[in-house]
């Protein structure tokens, strides 16, 4: 007699825990042949707001971790991904990819983690400056994370697309609330399990499943969100997001790109989510002349 498989319940990821949506709603995730793959959480505005609270709480600690430590944690994510290759492969194939495509997507995902891990303690040096002001002051500018970032992740790329937009956000010390692909949400929750075992502090990344149609307004009009990133091609949604962003002068970005090659991985994405802070301090009496830097 064949033994019954234990099916996985796909929940959402908020503050390091895996709750169901508070709304109790779900939607069916199916494969190309309309077979049921999972009942995914249809996240609500309340879920989003809870996630923002968790993210804000995590920002203090994550932004103050050393850049080196952030790099180690992102590298740990690559390690944890590596160990779950087969699980991701099954999910990606269930969502319609060929085995070869699935393998390539996983390989690139792991490599992207390693890539951004390496940037964690380098982008700051590259984009900082000591400014030669014409007075007796030491003056320097450094990037600092913006804060809480809401992200509507790519629709068509379940794992790689999700990773490609989360990594530059958190590599720079930001925290995020992410809406996963609506039609391909399986990998996002399995990826959350990777995050939960990668020493990433709870709340740094929060992942919801559901519909952009319902949630894009809330993702963009929340007053405690500092930046919003939209990665899909619905122009009406994008316009609403950009309009709502003005409510609290949110920074808004459209990252609708093809993530399937390395062409769009770069530190400029990290810098999109950075503020430049400039600090001045006088230099003690220096006699003749101006500044020394």
């Amino acid at each position: 007699m064949p033994q019954l498989n234990i099916l996985k319940t796909y929940k959402i990821f908020i503050g390091g825990a895996f709750p169901r949506t508070e709304s109790g709603r779900y939607y069916k995730v199916t494969d190309a042949k309309n077979n049921l793959l999972a009942n995914a959480c249809l996240s609500s505005r309340k879920d989003f707001r809870n996630a923002v609270v968790a993210a804000r709480k995590a920002f203090e600690g994550w932004s103050k971790k050393t850049h080196f430590n952030r790099g180690q944690i992102l590298y740990r994510m690559a390690e944890m991904l590596e160990g779950r290759r087969s699980q991701f492969k099954e999910e990606i194939m269930a969502q319609g990819s060929t085995p070869l495509q699935a393998e390539k997507e996983i390989q690139l995902s792991i490599e992207r983690c390693v890539y951004y891990s390496g940037w964690c303690d380098k982008y700051s040096a590259l984009y900082s400056s000591v400014n030669p002001v014409a007075s007796a002051h030491f003056n320097f500018s450094v990037p600092e994370p913006m804060g809480v970032v809401s992200v509507i992740a790519p629709e068509d790329s379940s794992l790689l697309g999700l990773l490609s937009v989360i990594l530059p956000v958190i590599a720079g010390g930001n925290v995020c609330v992410v809406l996963a692909s609506e039609t391909k949400p399986l990998c996002s929750i399995t990826f959350a399990e990777v995050l939960a075992t990668s020493d990433l502090p709870a709340g740094v990344v929060n992942i919801l499943t559901g519909k952009s149609k319902e949630l894009h307004t809330h993702f963009s009009n929340h007053m405690d969100v500092n930046a919003v990133i939209y990665c899909r091609d619905n122009q009406a949604e994008q316009k609403t997001i950009e309009e709502n962003a003005s409510i609290n002068v949110k920074r808004s970005f459209c990252w609708h790109k093809d993530w399937s090659s390395n062409e769009h991985q770069n530190p400029y994405l990290i810098m999109d989510l950075q503020e430049i802070k400039t600090t001045w301090h006088p230099i003690e009496s220096i006699g003749i002349g101006g500044a020394k830097y």
């Binding site: 400056s129 002001v133 014409a134 003056n139 500018s141 503020e275 802070k277 400039t278 600090t279 001045w280």
Partner: peptide, 17 residues
Amino acid sequence: AGVIWANTYNKFDPSSP
């Protein structure tokens, strides 16, 4: 904040963001 003055205030320079 984007500009912090320590032991000074309201200083500006073309080379300073």
